[in-house]
Design a binder for these strands. Structure first.
Lengths: 108, 108
DNA sequence: TCTTACATATGTATTTGACTCATAGTCGTT
DNA sequence: AACGACTATGAGTCAAATACATATGTAAGA
């Protein structure tokens, strides 16, 4: 369930801009506790999203510590998140009708 | 979303034994309207499930028309379906918490 | 009789995606 | 100097989904 990483990143970034490492740390909080994404892959993912214009990034010179690249969501990114939410709602619908049907026949 | 085919088949078969063709027709009803599975792949899937002991099948000599192989769920199949349901419930939980968080920030 | 629909298959090929492992740089702290 | 935080790139494996093609046989209807 790493396909779920993309919408999760978008959701986190909508709440406020963050740098990559922080995103990694907070990902399980949104995408499920067992979700661990390979660090390298995540930066790749972020790069990809930036190429698509979904996020934009800049080095944060002000922050202490090692160089951090801070990502923020673009308008296009917000729109993409909306589309994600819509399709996830559909998926949820399918899921819950399945489970309902499952529970109806349980115990026979 | 064809990964969803397996639990759907199991659910349908728990309700009553069916032959393959009928399963194909009724699949969208459970797995979502747009779900179309390649016919050949579905028979392969059924074969696989039978090898795993999840379903059992027999030719139905009595039924009119072309030869039909009727599948029914085994006890092991029922157990597998239960496990599916459990993990789908978890997935549903992740989904709905995601959507809830999404809706909380909507319109900013 | 010819076509169409029903029904069950097998073979193969492509593509995508998940996942892993390895490496390497900078910066700040200890 | 060593370590942890932070950002990256490279390369590769492996299974799964998907698609496409072909085959066989029965029965119903034009």
């Amino acid at each position: 369930m790493e396909r779920f990483a993309e919408p999760s990143l978008l959701l986190l970034l909508r709440e406020r801009p963050m740098h990559g490492y922080e995103l990694i740390e907070r990902l399980p909080e949104v995408a499920g506790a067992e979700t661990r994404v390979d660090v390298g892959n995540l930066y790749r993912l972020l790069r990809g999203l930036e190429e698509e214009g979904v996020v934009s990034s800049a080095w944060s010179a002000d922050l202490p510590g090692p160089a951090k690249r801070t990502y923020e969501l673009t308008d296009e990114g917000r729109a993409l998140l909306d589309r994600w939410a819509e399709s996830l709602r559909e998926a949820q619908g399918v899921l819950s009708s399945f489970l309902e049907r499952y529970e109806q026949g349980e115990g026979r």
